[in-house]
Write a protein that binds this DNA or RNA. Structure first.
Lengths: 334, 334
DNA sequence: TTGTAGGCGTTATCAT
DNA sequence: ATGATAACGCCTACAA
């Protein structure tokens, strides 16, 4: 690999000049510039990222922190992020926030230590303390769909509350009278907001029954289990709203096993808009988040934060969510 | 952040000594060592990864190249890889081999340039030429389940041929007589091997009909489409073997829409063993790969390659695949 | 056993 | 407009 010195030598200039043309800063004569560029091509010179990082404290790489890449929501997000990041020349370091085994190496330290330029945090499992720690380290962060108490952290979110409302209204609109909710963990903000949308909407029409709510944990398994217990206690439930699509998949599986017709006996709607919802039969209605946009926007915002530390642009951005009606809520009831 | 110099100063020794205790090489007095360690703790010193990388040309990071992280097989693999890598102190750079947009920046160059220590390549979409290029750069590579013409590249694979045989034998064992196959793209080795297992097994029992084979592309969509065309032409098909689980999911969806009972009318078996296969109803039988083990093993092998450039250990490893019978092949036919 | 000093490849500050 | 040169933080001969 050719170094900047090789280029300098070949062009008959100093490394400083070469550096200038590389970074397009400082004055440099047109002719010398072309001379230098020619040498660079000849030597197939590529500036060494690591050396650069040492000098600049910038690595052109972003960390993506997810709770569990195995949850189908995150690969979709990751794809958007990787795509976008790459288009800017950035690499993505994939980090799971799960505590794996006893070796709970502090990955945050590792990230800081590697001069990661910025972090996209899509996990609610990270303690607020860690977030603050990161923030003090000066690394720009954009949080996805999590409560941001710390001022100064950019965040991109969707209107979960409205989404909850839309879901329930939709269920009502197709004739459901007894609508259950399988929520996400209540310590997670997102869950709470969706839950509140559910509650408020049903209260307004006097159809709210606290006992129709069970707390799930966003997994398929929890969708299954909670459906069994729910249906056992209240066989006349005619609609279910789950706080995410993954649980809806579980619900559907349980419902089918119970011999329930969907949506004739029980309608079902999830939340997220992951593609898995259309992979199965019947396809699951959902309140779709613009997942790709979220990822893409996160990268744009993060990079702008990196490039311009003291920027004054809006620090938080809320995207719209939209109802996608599919087979599990297709039937208009009478 | 404290530097090695701060530690040296505080301990009253030279940076060389500190470096020695950090890397545990060279002689260093027990007492000075404890002194130094104490200083490190006090200052919360962490060796700077970037500086280290510049000096060593090693970054403690591995690249994972996947065709599409959105395909459920890869997140499962990625999880195993990230887990294992982290337990060794390595970070994972996620790279998609898809050509995204016109900006076909050469990510391989980027990886080389970043002093990535090693690469796990799980994509058949990467041209052999690129692989060779990488290899010449001296970066260790382990290839997952792809043909390795280039000698010197480690590879971890499963016995796809045997898997194909197992799948078909299983279908035969439950009474299927007219078994179709939706293969993967024929230019991919994996597809070919599974296909051959199918062909050979059926030929042996004189039930082979070339027209029952269609070429899919590993996506759900292709599972759906090919099922429609297959069933239209041959309504009496009673078993389908797909080259991966994702297509099986598509097949199942199409079958349900067509009003076919699974497995009573048509039995179905996939390949891979992704968890998605159990997320739906009925659950899909499969020839399961030990996905987690593959990922974990890949990291172990890669790191051993990195640590010991001229090692003579086996360069290729084949893992066993196993039949997992689930609902889509549950019924014993008469 | 420990220290000095040059090098890893770039950037950026001062001169010139 | 260009060139020396000192950082960046660490490693490692080579000396001592």
């Amino acid at each position: 690999m050719a170094t900047i010195r090789d280029v300098a030598k070949l062009s008959g200039v100093s490394v400083a000049t070469v550096s200038r043309v590389i970074n397009q800063n400082g004055y440099v004569n047109k002719d010398t510039e072309t001379k230098v560029r020619k040498s660079m091509e000849l030597l197939k010179y590529k500036p060494n990222t690591v050396a650069r990082a040492l000098a600049n404290k910038k690595t052109e790489s972003l960390a993506l922190i997810v709770p569990d890449i195995t949850n189908p929501f995150f690969p979709e997000l990751a794809k958007a992020i990787e795509d976008t990041a790459r288009s800017f020349g950035y690499s993505i370091i994939l980090t799971s926030s799960e505590v794996n085994g006893d070796k709970n190496i502090n990955y945050l330290e590792i990230l800081i230590n590697r001069y990661i330029d910025g972090i996209i945090c899509s996990s609610n499992e990270i303690p607020e303390a860690d977030i603050n720690h990161l923030q003090k380290s000066g690394i720009p962060i954009v949080a996805l769909d999590r409560a941001v108490n710390s001022k100064g952290i950019a965040s991109i979110r969707v209107n979960n509350y409205d989404g909850g409302i839309m879901a329930v209204q939709h269920l009502l609109s197709i004739g459901c009278k007894k609508i259950a909710h399988i929520s996400g963990p209540f310590h997670i903000n997102t869950s709470l907001e969706r839950y509140r949308g559910y509650v408020d909407t049903l209260e307004k029409v006097q159809l709210f029954h606290p006992s129709l709510i069970v707390e799930g944990d966003f997994t398929i398994e929890s969708g299954i289990k909670n459906t069994y217990s729910l249906i056992e206690k209240y066989p006349d439930i005619d609609g279910i709203f789950t706080a995410n699509d993954l649980m809806a998949v579980g619900v559907l599986k349980a419902l089918i096993r119970l011999g329930k017709k969907v949506p004739e006996d029980i309608a079902l709607i999830g939340f997220d808009g992951i593609t898995l919802g259309t992979a199965i039969e019947p396809e699951i209605s959902t309140i779709a988040q613009p997942i790709y946009d979220i990822g893409s926007l996160a990268v744009h915002k993060l990079i702008s934060l990196i490039k311009n530390q003291h920027n004054t642009e809006e620090i938080s951005r809320e995207l719209e969510v939209k109802l996608v009606q599919r087979a599990t809520t297709s039937k208009i009831k009478n």
